[in-house]
Design a protein around this nucleic acid. Structure first.
Length: 427
DNA sequence: TCTGGGGTCCTAGGACCC
DNA sequence: TCTGGGGTCCTAGGACCC
């Protein structure tokens, strides 16, 4: 059996932990740049505030109903996420936990025996809540996809389920699938949901589970579709992933706080993002052999298709894979010259590192020049300083010092658990 | 004019996830 | 006025090889 443990309204729950007077009150958390709503408490959901909806559209409603609003505080969320995952590892053994995202983890509960799954689920839920203060929902079923269905229904009916739902018989599975719209299945997005409904009259997860794997291959994206249908039918096709996943691509991209028309500012932004991306790269001991950058211009009909503003990109293949910031900044900034158009208004830029390989410079070897090793040392010192200061204390000059392109973050709460000067105080 | 049957590697793009 | 930031996997198609 597999379980999925999912934190309820995770970012909102993190904020409430330090402001308990907000319990049972509507709360929302905004994305970077205070652009979209990315987390809503149940009370905010029932006011009709839309997930991923633009903040400025929801703002009148937010003011009217006195909804407490936060900018994202990733230091805080990251730390609390770590506490939740550690709790799970203590409960079921680290080797059985697969961290799936900042607020979700799969757990392998094993196959054998007549276990009281309901009780196991409750124990997990209650322990996490007691140890971390974060409320979670637990779905338990024979496959990952079915456990996600169970989790979805647990959240839909919090009172009846107490946030724990087990699907351990075919009868329960079928009943659950019949109550689940096809769009809510893990792996079915907007496009497939429309297609399934309009062309094939598939409305519920149950309808889809009646289709054959061959049918799914034809109409649901090849092998991906086969796996999905088999998982719905109770056959495990998605195994537990072992931790230690090394990323295959690393990106740092941001909207600007304001429109940018100046090439130097774009270069500063690109240099800053490159530094950040290189840091992530070194954290997983990789080096990159390809660096790409892109910029997004503000389109004419911005209000209609803001998402599809045309993105113009370029990439460079590096002669040698590297993880050194200065070796990445130089080609990145040069790429800006190739794509920048005078007189254009830009709203976003990004850097992507790909072609990632293990970093050869980490263990100095006899055949590497000394200069090369010194470079890695400089980088670790820089990472250490920046980590200790929890910011970017030491930067490359190319990143600029004024940064008037920086994003907005006007309502961020204190980083209670990761900065000494922002610790929670009791007076 | 005709025009095989494999392979591999790479890139772009689509679809999805949180 | 104002619309997030990461990632993954898969497929198709082109270039190239024998």
């Amino acid at each position: 059996m597999k379980a999925i443990v999912d934190c309820n309204s995770f970012y909102c729950s993190c904020e409430r932990l330090f402001m308990p007077h907000l319990d049972h009150k509507p709360v929302v958390v905004l994305s970077n740049n205070d652009g979209c709503i990315v987390s809503r408490s149940d009370e905010a959901k029932s006011l009709g505030i839309k997930m991923a909806g633009p903040y400025f559209i929801a703002k009148p409603m937010i003011l009217e109903h006195n909804v407490t609003t936060f900018s994202s505080n990733y230091n805080l969320y990251g730390d609390l996420s770590w506490r939740v995952m550690e709790t799970l590892r203590v409960l079921v053994g680290a080797e059985n936990v697969e961290v799936y995202s900042v607020d979700e983890a799969f757990i392998d509960l094993g196959e054998e025996g007549e276990n009281d799954w309901q009780q196991i689920g409750m124990k997990i839920k209650e322990t996490v809540e007691q140890w971390t203060g974060i409320k979670v929902s637990v779905g338990i079923a024979p496959t990952k996809v079915l456990s996600k269905v169970a989790n979805y229904l647990a959240k839909e009916n919090k009172l009846a389920t107490q946030c724990v739902l087990v699907l351990d018989t075919q009868r329960k599975i079928d009943a659950a699938l019949q109550r689940t719209p096809v769009k809510e299945i893990w792996g079915v997005g907007y496009q497939y949901a429309q297609k399934l409904k309009e062309m094939y009259a598939v409305f519920t997860a149950y309808d889809l589970s009646r289709k054959s794997p061959e049918w799914a291959h034809k109409h649901l994206g090849g092998v991906t579709g086969i796996r999905l249908v088999k998982e719905l039918q109770g056959e495990s096709m998605k195994t537990m992933e072992k931790e230690l996943t090394v990323k295959k691509m690393i990106a740092t991209t941001r909207m600007f706080g304001h429109i940018v028309k100046n090439k130097e500012a774009i270069k500063e932004a690109i240099a800053t993002y490159t530094s950040k991306a290189a840091e992530k790269l070194r954290r997983q001991n990789s080096a990159a052999n390809t660096i790409s950058i892109f910029v997004v211009a503000k389109g004419q009909n911005h209000n209609i298709d803001f998402r599809h503003g045309e993105s113009i990109g370029q990439y460079t293949r590096l002669p040698v894979a590297t993880s050194a910031t200065h070796e990445l900044i130089k080609p990145a900034v040069e790429l800006v010259d190739r794509i920048f158009v005078e007189g254009t208004s830009y709203k976003k830029a990004g850097v992507m590192l790909s072609g990632l390989v293990p970093d050869e410079t980490i263990q100095g070897n006899l055949f590497t020049e000394e200069k090369h090793n010194g470079k890695r040392l400089l980088m670790s010192m820089l990472d250490n300083v920046n980590f200790a200061m929890r910011g970017d204390m030491v930067k490359f000059a190319a990143s600029g010092t004024k940064r008037n392109w920086k994003m907005r973050m006007e309502m961020r709460s204190p980083r209670y658990t990761s900065r000494w000067d922002e610790l929670f105080e009791i007076s």
